[in-house]
């Protein structure tokens, strides 16, 4: 009895609160990255290895637009649109011809694209990290911490973008097309749905969402050509844990894993806390390979 009390007494509740907020903030941005990835996988069976580079490219376009216009919001909008268009072009040129081929070919194609984009960024912008100035700089008192409002804004904006995506999928004609083509590509086509263009559209949406997260996250980490790597790795873990192609599952998994990592960092260094996500990944693959957050296997 007293042992249990001691354990409860030993929990640093102040840090738990702070890490809960941190976990939700990173969880939401991760959910934004992962939902594009999972949407693309769900409809095309394509594992997009270039997703992290679309995230990075979004951040760089954000840097450039911010430098020329001075407006963060304009930077967010323009980066999203440009990368969405680029995504559409990439899909048409590299993935459309591979539809129905061995998944390995699409993995190689997107991996190739990621190398090209990364090296383009290195050549164009150099190795030194660029900074995106956050649009709001205030902070509030979270216990003994000065917690930046901007972090909460990121979480709220990510949630808003994901919510908009959900509404779009749920009610729009394109949403019905996307869901129909995800469930049965051939039958969707036989119903007159232009499936090749739906694929292009989904890839553009996913790319745009990656770019938006890159711009939103830029102020917290600095923009470099390699910034996509960490994120895409985590996003892959989230997509697998959430159930490949399952949007709701990915969002839940993103918040879940980010919270676990945040709590772990109370006791171990942040670098070690990263291990948590791999542990979750391995346990998922061992125990429930269809995904932790999938109610019934598809």
């Amino acid at each position: 009895m007293s042992a249990i009390l001691e354990i409860f007494a030993a929990i640093p509740y102040d840090q738990v609160l702070i890490q809960t907020v941190n976990g939700i903030v990173t969880g939401m941005i991760l959910a934004l990255v992962a939902s594009g990835l999972t949407l693309i996988f769900g409809i095309m069976d394509v594992v997009n290895f270039a997703h992290g580079e679309l995230f990075m490219l979004g951040a760089y376009i954000g840097v450039v637009v911010l430098a020329t216009t001075g407006s963060f919001w304009l930077a967010l909008l323009i980066a999203t649109l440009i990368v969405a268009l680029l995504g559409a072009a990439l899909q048409i040129v590299t993935l459309r011809p591979l539809l129905g081929r061995d998944p390995l070919t699409t993995i190689l194609a997107t991996f190739g694209v990621s190398l090209v984009l990364q090296n383009y960024a290195l050549w164009q912008f150099g190795p030194v990290a660029r900074k995106i100035q956050e649009p709001i700089t205030g902070s509030f008192q979270l216990l003994y911490l000065e917690y930046p409002w901007y972090r909460l804004l990121i979480a709220a904006l990510s949630a808003a973008i994901i919510g908009a995506l959900w509404l779009f999928l749920k009610f729009g004609t394109w949403g019905i097309w996307i869901r129909a083509a995800t469930q049965d590509r051939v039958m969707a086509q036989a119903m007159g749905i232009p499936v090749p263009w739906v694929h292009t559209g989904v890839f553009a949406i996913g790319a745009g969402m990656a770019a938006a997260s890159g711009v939103l996250f830029g102020p917290l980490v600095g923009v470099t050509h390699a910034m996509g790597l960490d994120w895409v790795l985590k996003a892959f873990i989230v997509v697998v844990v959430g159930g490949m192609g399952n949007l709701g599952g990915s969002i839940a998994a993103a918040v879940f894993i980010s919270l676990l990592e945040a709590y772990a960092s109370i006791w171990v260094s942040p670098a070690q806390a990263v291990i948590v996500s791999f542990v979750v990944l391995i346990l998922t693959l061992l125990i429930r390979p269809t995904g932790l957050f999938v109610p019934t296997p598809k």
Binding site: T173, I176, W177, R179, A180, Q183, D184, A188, M191
Partner: peptide, 12 residues
């Protein structure tokens, strides 16, 4: 389309 409602199936 199993996960689409009857109405959504028709809307395709």
């Amino acid at each position: 389309f199993r996960f689409l409602t009857v109405m959504e199936n028709l809307r395709t």
